[in-house]
């Protein structure tokens, strides 16, 4: 993890935009068959910036962040991640996957491997790290997500919240520069959401660049530098959390916020 980042600021990312952006999306377009699911997405995320993406289901949020580590391929526009442009070139793909960690809604832990093996698999085979070193690293991160004692269990023996924290540790073991979260708390029981969000807050405090698709408005207010609202495949509004939540400019965001609040 880039420990050099100052953990001070929860403020606007303006201070850090002088360096090259961690992620740059320039007029990105994507189709599923004839359905135009991402429309002229322009988004620049600075190093260490924390962005929360929200919007109604089917608005393209997940598709957008899945384009960043190329689980989905965009068809038009440019995506530059950590100075590497995403193209059909397989070298860029390998490089990106090493730099970008991802946490899924349904955890996607490998059920046939122990927690420790889940965490060491990619460092050993992709980062070419010696096994001992990888295990030490994995234990460090498992300690940080507060479940070192579960290292030799299998995913099926853990609760949902614990599994999701393992998934975060697994992604961190690749020492990524950027972390993507795709609705990490949506599949969890209410009592487990907090432990996962706490882990994410802790991660945010270390200065990690994060993009997080979530409906947890409390989390957005607490850690986000910026909130992006998407609807029907385009970015409708974006800004600092207070401004966006307290003073929505568009009708679509107002409708969305009222639905979210009613739900809570």
């Amino acid at each position: 993890m880039s420990a050099t980042m100052d953990t001070a600021a929860h403020l606007s990312s303006a201070a850090r935009t002088d360096g090259p952006p961690a992620i740059l999306m320039d007029k990105v377009n994507k189709w599923y068959g004839a359905l135009h699911v991402l429309r002229d997405i322009n988004l620049s995320v600075a190093q260490g910036e924390r962005v929360v993406v929200c919007g109604p289901s089917g608005s393209g949020k997940s598709t957008m962040i899945r384009c960043i580590n190329r689980l989905e391929q965009h068809q038009e526009g440019r995506i530059v991640v950590d100075n590497i442009e995403l193209t059909d070139d397989l070298r860029s793909l390998d490089a990106i996957r090493r730099e970008v960690g991802m946490v899924f809604q349904s955890f996607n832990l490998f059920p046939h491997l122990t927690i420790l093996e889940n965490c060491t698999l990619a460092p050993i085979w992709v980062r070419r790290m010696p096994k001992k070193e990888a295990e030490a690293l994995a234990m460090e991160y498992l300690t940080r997500v507060k479940i070192p004692e579960q290292a030799n269990k299998y995913p099926g023996q853990l609760s949902g919240g614990q599994q999701q924290r393992v998934a975060i540790a697994r992604a961190l073991c690749m020492k990524p520069k950027i972390m993507l979260f795709d609705e990490p708390t949506s599949a969890l029981d209410p009592e487990m959401i907090k432990e996962v969000l706490d882990t994410m807050v802790m991660l945010a405090d270390t200065g990690m660049t994060m993009i997080c698709v979530t409906h947890e408005m409390g989390f957005a207010r607490q850690v986000a530098d910026r909130v992006v609202f998407m609807d029907r495949g385009e970015i409708v509004e974006s800004g600092v959390p207070e401004q966006l939540f307290n003073d929505p400019k568009t009708e679509r965001l107002k409708t969305f916020l009222s639905q979210i609040l009613r739900g809570h």
Binding site: N29, W31, A34, L35, H36, V37, R39, Q75, E76, D88, D89, R232, G233, E234
Partner: peptide, 16 residues
């Protein structure tokens, strides 16, 4: 639905 208005582009192939 604006998502049905534009058709996707075609892509070429790179010799690499």
């Amino acid at each position: 639905d604006p998502r049905l208005l534009r058709a996707p582009p075609k892509k070429g192939i790179r010799l690499s």
